[in-house]
């Protein structure tokens, strides 16, 4: 296995990581998209996952919420081993209830927002807390409204997703993830589907979340954002972690040749 270019020594953080991944593989037929990922994220970390398209970064993120099932490897969430059973050359879910429970703790924000189009913004926010987490409707409503105020959408609470701009939809989707009170937030290219002038409003919300110490894993192409906001960068190349470290050190250059080339291409573009 290729060695990982590290800019710093591994963190001396407490024992139980929020997410811990060992030797994660993902195959689609004969194509191996992830070729053995080892990864840990601790509470309060903001990790940006960078890489060219096809490097496997989205697949990796989706494995953490089990929207993709790994073909091999081990996954622990808050120290709890995710029960995955071998099935042919792949793994499948061993304990459906465990997965459903962990998913509310590891919330996902999608590239295409994926708000439920038959529900209003407020209903979107209340759906999982009321029906999955079975919290009381009144309390959830208050929290959802507070969350909408936070992302600046309280006046759109009764609107349907189709009536919102892309930036508003993504802010609503982030709010939807937050009302579940997850311990980890996963962002899968949250600004890639947005018109350029709408990117800023979403990044601002994410900046605020990072500032309040949330645990966030972000797949993104927003290099400036990754550099300024992340506590750590993970650079994926061809299904492996090629480089990992503090943003200022990685972006300074010289840690990984491939990463420097990747950044250079971005700066030209």
């Amino acid at each position: 296995m290729a060695s990982v270019n590290r800019s710093v020594v591994a963190h001396n953080t407490p024992a139980v990581p929020a997410i811990s991944v060992n030797d994660l593989h993902k195959r689609y037929g004969t194509v191996e998209v992830l070729k053995g990922i080892d990864f840990r994220a601790h509470d309060g970390e903001v990790v940006s996952i960078l890489g060219a398209s096809g490097s496997g970064k989205s697949t990796f993120l989706r494995c953490l919420n089990l929207l993709e099932l790994p073909s091999a490897g081990r996954l622990q969430i808050f120290g709890e081993k995710v029960n995955l059973r071998p099935s042919g050359s792949n793994l499948r879910i061993g304990d459906r209830n465990q997965v459903d429970r962990l998913r509310t703790q590891v919330a996902m924000v999608f590239q295409n927002f994926c708000l439920w189009s038959h529900m209003t913004v407020l209903e979107n926010l209340m759906e999982a807390p009321v029906h999955v987490q079975r919290r009381s409707r009144g309390q959830v409503r208050d929290e959802a409204e507070a969350m909408l105020k936070r992302v600046g959408l309280i006046d759109r609470a009764k609107a349907y997703p189709a009536q919102l701009s892309g930036g508003q939809q993504q802010r609503a989707a982030i709010a939807r993830a937050l009302v579940m009170k997850p311990r980890v937030l996963l962002f899968d290219e949250p600004t890639s589907a947005l018109d350029p002038e709408l990117v800023g409003e979403v990044l601002k919300v994410m900046r605020d979340l990072a500032a309040e110490g949330r645990t966030m894993l972000i797949v993104t192409h927003e290099m400036a954002f990754a550099r300024d906001v992340s506590s750590r960068i993970v650079f994926l190349e061809q299904g492996r972690i090629n480089a990992e470290g503090l943003p200022q050190e990685l972006f300074r250059g010289g840690v990984s040749e491939r990463f420097d080339q990747f950044i250079a291409r971005f700066n030209q573009g």
């Binding site: 459906r96 429970r101 998913r103 509310t104 999608f110 439920w116 759906e127 029906h131 999955v132 987490q133």
Partner: peptide, 20 residues
Amino acid sequence: GQIEAGASCGMSKFLLLRRI
């Protein structure tokens, strides 16, 4: 994507069917 979003929130198959 909307079905995935439901699954990612921990909805069971039945809940997904009923709500989404």
